[in-house]
Amino acid sequence: MFEKIRKMKNKKGFTLVELIVVLVIMAILAALLVPALTGYIDRARKEAIVAETRSCVMAAQTIAAEKYGANAADVANDAMMAAVDDIKKLAEVDGAISNITMKKADGSDYAGKVSTLSYTKGAWTCTYTEGVTTGSNGAYDVKPKT
């Protein structure tokens, strides 16, 4: 009888109770971490779409400057909407660009500066609006796609 007890003491491994305790602890940690991680993921996606919108605004401004320099005339909003494919290629993005409006630096209607631009990718839409105050870089508003 003592030999059987000695043999059982020499066996190495985990008991079923120990394994269940470890699994319960891991489940509790996962339940605490998943909501926190999804918040970080959403925030990262929003920051990524803002960065892509900035690229689109810079590309649109570049194309508007090229058009203005070549024609020495106003660049109409329609002309910018016709150049959406060129803007996407220059900005190296694959989302949808819409609502491009142009304004003069003094605020009057005419194309010289990108006033607004909307960029949609996946479940998010980011809208750039030119800054209201002098020297402002503009605002980027991220909302779920509607």
Score class of each variant (00 low, 15 high):
residue 52 E to P: 06
residue 19 L to P: 01
residue 24 V to W: 00
residue 12 K to T: 08
residue 61 Q to K: 09
residue 136 S to W: 01
residue 41 I to T: 06
residue 82 A to Y: 01
residue 18 E to C: 09
residue 56 C to I: 13
residue 76 A to I: 00
residue 111 A to Q: 02
residue 54 R to H: 12
residue 23 L to Y: 02
residue 62 T to P: 07
residue 42 D to K: 08
residue 130 E to N: 09
residue 41 I to D: 04
residue 75 V to G: 05
residue 9 K to Q: 14
residue 37 L to W: 01
residue 96 A to M: 11
residue 30 A to P: 02
residue 26 M to P: 03
residue 11 K to M: 12
residue 72 A to E: 08
residue 102 M to C: 10
residue 74 D to Y: 01
residue 47 E to L: 04
residue 99 N to C: 07
residue 58 M to P: 04
residue 17 V to A: 11
residue 85 D to A: 14
residue 120 T to K: 15
residue 135 G to I: 07
residue 10 N to W: 01
residue 4 K to D: 11
residue 88 K to A: 14
residue 146 T to L: 13
residue 24 V to K: 00
residue 32 L to Y: 07
residue 29 L to P: 04
residue 80 M to T: 05
residue 65 A to Y: 05
residue 31 A to E: 00
residue 34 V to P: 04
residue 145 K to G: 11
residue 38 T to H: 06
residue 28 I to P: 03
residue 12 K to F: 01
residue 138 G to F: 10
residue 123 A to T: 14
residue 47 E to V: 03
residue 144 P to W: 03
residue 113 K to P: 03
residue 20 I to F: 10
residue 131 G to S: 04
residue 35 P to W: 04
residue 134 T to H: 09
residue 75 V to R: 03
residue 142 V to W: 09
residue 138 G to I: 08
residue 5 I to D: 07
residue 94 D to A: 15
residue 133 T to Y: 10
residue 68 Y to H: 04
residue 75 V to M: 07
residue 44 A to M: 00
residue 112 G to K: 03
residue 42 D to L: 09
residue 36 A to H: 02
residue 3 E to L: 06
residue 127 T to G: 10
residue 2 F to D: 13
residue 75 V to C: 06
residue 67 K to T: 01
residue 95 G to Y: 14
residue 133 T to G: 14
residue 96 A to S: 13
residue 90 L to A: 12
residue 25 I to H: 00
residue 127 T to Y: 05
residue 109 D to K: 04
residue 56 C to F: 14
residue 11 K to V: 11
residue 109 D to F: 05
residue 32 L to W: 04
